[in-house]
Amino acid sequence: MSVVIEQPRSPRSRKGANWEKYGWMYMRASGALLVILIFGHLFTNLFLGEGIKAIDFAFVGGKWSDPFWKVWDLAMLWLALIHGTNGMRTIVNDYASKEAVRKTLVWALWGICAVLVTLGTLVVFTFDPCPAGAAAELLPSFCPAS
């Protein structure tokens, strides 16, 4: 299918909401927030203390026992996945030359985004830092000894 490009000075022929504009605004708004969220995430997880060496189940359990980090990580999950998916959509729109391929890829992108946002949100909300039957040495120190 050939793409019709409108004359630059032709009047606007658009019906419904201008989603491209909202997408453009979203990339900038979420991007600004993500700079703070991700720099903070990298600083606490990779720079402070023992960095990557200290990250294990007990570390995550300790962090997510604090509502502050739950909100932080949830915000990061939603903002980053939608930001990344919309960026990939832009790239697909630029390079996919067949309309059917483009549509399929864009649908796949939003499908993956929806699945991961749902999965991540469920994990944060249903997470148990002290699961029953787990070895005590793998759990955060505040868990009651079983």
């Binding site: 294990d56 189940f57 007990a58 995550v60 359990g61 999950l77 980053a80 996945l81 990344g84 998916t85 960026g87 990939m88 790239i91 993956i112 991961l116 999965l119 991540g120 469920l122 994990v123 249903t126 997470f127 699961p131 787990a134 070895a135 793998l138 759990l139």
Partner: peptide, 26 residues
């Protein structure tokens, strides 16, 4: 951007393992 996107997909999945068991995540 593309590189970070693909890492993000993996990173959400690996973090989701905390819901499975401490051993799986570790």
């Amino acid at each position: 951007g593309v590189a970070i996107f693909f890492f993000l997909l993996v990173h959400v999945l690996d973090t989701a393992l905390v819901r499975l068991s401490p051993e799986a995540y570790n």
